[in-house]
């Protein structure tokens, strides 16, 4: 029940779905369509794992007064405040409309700026890394460096000003050698994914069972 049944579900489900692709029979379509209705419902509940783990982690921190425990409130309050404001008190702040409630405010004016700015910090770090770590130590490193510089210049308007050959060479690198390298990687990834799919379907790969009881 604990291991065999889940492994059976994976195998039967996997084979059934693989086969239905090649047999577009009426019955296989009915099963397939029902599955497509069911899957998002089952998938939606996976959110419970995220919310549960996060809540447990931060309530523990608060209870044990762990280091920086005060900040855990900054996770828990919006975590449950968002549903509260969206579903129970969705009153508008902007006068009558159904939008512009506290829920939208928190998303648009706190979440969006913070997340965008966090990602943009990488601009500073990549500049620092370019200065400290990007060295032409060998022939291969030099090739990498030259390709990077040509593409960087070719992609911006100043590249056109410096000489038409810059964007042209940059595009040539992108369209041919870059394409060759990425296609080789893509083929490798593709075969890897297919092999993993088969290993999971046939129960060879079982790590996903995790440690939830033997």
């Amino acid at each position: 029940m604990k291991r065999t049944v889940p492994l059976m579900i994976v195998m039967v489900g996997g084979i059934l779905m693989m086969v239905q692709y090649f047999i577009p029979h009426q019955y296989s379509q009915v099963i397939f369509n029902n599955y497509l209705e069911w899957a998002p419902i089952v998938g939606a509940f996976a959110l419970i794992l995220g919310v549960g783990s996060l809540t447990r982690l931060h309530t523990h921190k608060i209870r044990r007064k762990a280091q920086n425990w005060q900040y855990s409130w900054a996770v828990l309050i919006p975590l449950f405040g968002m549903p509260l404001f969206a579903l129970i008190i969705p009153q508008s702040l902007g006068g009558g409309s159904d939008v512009h409630g506290v829920h939208d405010f928190l998303f648009m004016h706190i979440q969006v700026p913070i997340q965008s700015t966090m990602f943009s910090l990488l601009a500073f770090y990549i500049a620092s890394a370019a200065f400290r770590a990007f060295r032409a130590k060998s022939a291969l490193a030099t090739i990498l460096l030259l390709a990077a510089v040509i593409v960087m210049l070719g992609q911006v308007p100043i590249g056109d000003v410096l000489g038409k050959w810059l964007p042209n060479t940059g595009l040539w690198i992108l369209r041919y050698p870059n394409l060759a390298a990425k296609r080789a990687i893509m083929l490798g990834v593709g075969f890897g994914m297919l092999a993993t799919n088969l290993k999971i379907i046939f129960g060879v790969e079982r790590n996903w069972l995790g440690g939830a009881g033997k």
């Binding site: 601009a123 990549i126 500049a127 370019a130 200065f131 400290r132 990007f134 060295r135 032409a136 460096l145 510089v149 960087m152 210049l153 992609q155 911006v156 308007p157 100043i158 590249g159």
Partner: peptide, 19 residues
């Protein structure tokens, strides 16, 4: 895109100076 040009030049200069 103007900023993009300026920042790319700046980063290329950093790479050159670092080397």
């Amino acid at each position: 895109m103007d900023v993009q040009s300026a920042a790319h030049i700046f980063i290329i200069l950093l790479i050159v100076m670092g080397n």
